[in-house]
Amino acid sequence: MARKNKSVKKTGGGLKFWGRHAIGAALDNPRRVIKKISGTREALATLDLPEGLPVVYCDVADLGRMVARDAPHQGMVADVDPLPDIWLGDLLDDASAAGRPILLLDQVTDPHNVGAILRSAAAFDAAAIVTQDRHAPPESGTLAKSASGALEIVPWIRVVNLSRALDEIAQAGYWRIGLDGEGTELLSQAMGNSKLALVMGAEGEGLRQNVAAHCDVISRLPMSARMESLNVSNAAAIALYAEYTRTKD
C-alpha cells in the first residue's frame, strides 16, 4: 500500500537538454516527453529518432543561441518536459528497489554535483535519490549533461520535509547512515546488514542538525589527515561504491 509522503509538485515549463548522452537517454526513457529536437544533420544522424518527433535541422551557430553560453551541445538540443512526480511511498513498496540503497541529499544545490551524484547512483545501482524540493536544483540542461544520461535512469524523489522522509524510510526497514567528517565510526563499521539509506550534507555546512538527528548513526569515510573533506559528489560515489561491493561479496 502506497504511503502518504508524496514528492512535491514540480513547477515550471519546458526544458532544453543538450549533448548526445543526455538526449539519447531521454529518447530511451518512455516517461520523458520530448516535444522537439534541433540539431545538425550529422549529429542527429547518430540518434534513433522516433517517428513523428518534430525535427529542426540547423547549424551550430543557431544551436549555440538556444542554450547557455559555451554549453557543449554536440550538435543537438532537445525541448523536453520535466519528468512526472514520484511518490516516496511507491518507491518503498516497489519490490525491484528492495536491497538497493537510497541516497538522500540535504540541501545540495549545485546542479553539477547533483548530476554527478545521479551518475554514480546509476553506476552503483541505487534505488533512488531523495531531495527536499527547496534548496535543491530543478531539472535542467546543465544537470542532465552532468548526469550523462543518469537523470533518465535513477528515480529522483522530491519531498517537502527530509526529516519526515527519513522517518518513513526507517519504517520501511532501512538503516539510516549520515555521512559527516566528524562521524563517530567509519562507514564500513556502520553499514551492518540492513537495507541502507545514505544521507549526504551540503558542502561546507554538512548535515543539518535536525536531519542528522533522524539518522541511526553518523559515520565518516576513511581519509588521510592531509585532506579535510571531499566534494559531496566524490563522497557520494565512494559511499555508494562501498555499499555496492558489500552487497556483491
Rank of each mutant, 00 (worst) to 15 (best):
G141R: 05
D106T: 15
I102A: 05
S140P: 03
W156S: 06
P82F: 14
A121M: 14
L105Q: 11
A144M: 06
V130P: 02
V114N: 03
P82H: 07
R69D: 07
P72L: 13
E139T: 08
L103P: 07
Y57M: 05
T131W: 02
P101T: 08
A71E: 04
D85N: 12
C58V: 10
I153H: 14
D59E: 12
L143W: 04
D93G: 13
V60F: 04
I129E: 03
G64L: 00
L63A: 09
G141Y: 06
L88K: 01
H73V: 04
I129H: 03
A122E: 11
I117E: 01
P138C: 06
R119F: 07
L83I: 08
A126P: 02
L103W: 08
P137K: 01
F124G: 00
L91F: 04
A150H: 11
S120W: 04
S146T: 07
I117P: 02
A123F: 13
I117V: 15
L92I: 10
L143T: 08
P138D: 06
P155Q: 05
A97D: 06
A98N: 06
D125C: 00
S146G: 09
V154E: 05
I117M: 12
A144I: 04
D133E: 11
A136D: 00
K145T: 12
E139R: 01
A116S: 12
K145A: 15
G141E: 07
C58N: 00
I86S: 00
A147Y: 12
V130R: 02
V108P: 01
M76Y: 02
D133A: 12
C58A: 14
P84R: 01
R100S: 07
V67E: 04
D94H: 10
G64N: 11
L63Q: 01
P137L: 10
P138H: 11
W87C: 14
I86R: 08
M76I: 14
A127F: 10
R69W: 11
G64H: 01
Q132K: 11
F124P: 00
L91W: 04
R65C: 08
S148T: 12
I86G: 00
L143F: 08
A127N: 04
T142K: 15
D133K: 03
A136G: 09
A122W: 14
H135E: 14
D70W: 11
S148M: 15
D94Y: 03
A147R: 05
K145Q: 13
A71V: 05
K145S: 08
G99I: 09
D110R: 01
W87D: 09
A78D: 00
M76F: 05
A71Y: 04
A127T: 09
G75K: 04
E152M: 10
T142M: 14
Q107N: 15
M76R: 03
D79Y: 07
D79K: 09
A97Q: 06
S120F: 07
D125L: 00
S120Q: 03
L91Y: 03
P111R: 13
A144T: 02
A95T: 13
R69M: 12
L83Y: 15
L91T: 02
E139A: 09
F124S: 01
R100Y: 07
I153A: 07
E139H: 06
V80L: 12
E152A: 13
V60T: 02
A78R: 00
R134C: 09
V60Y: 10
D106A: 12
T131K: 04
V60D: 12
T109D: 05
N113R: 08
G99T: 13
I102D: 06
V67I: 15
Q107V: 09
A147G: 09
D79H: 11
D85P: 04
L105V: 09
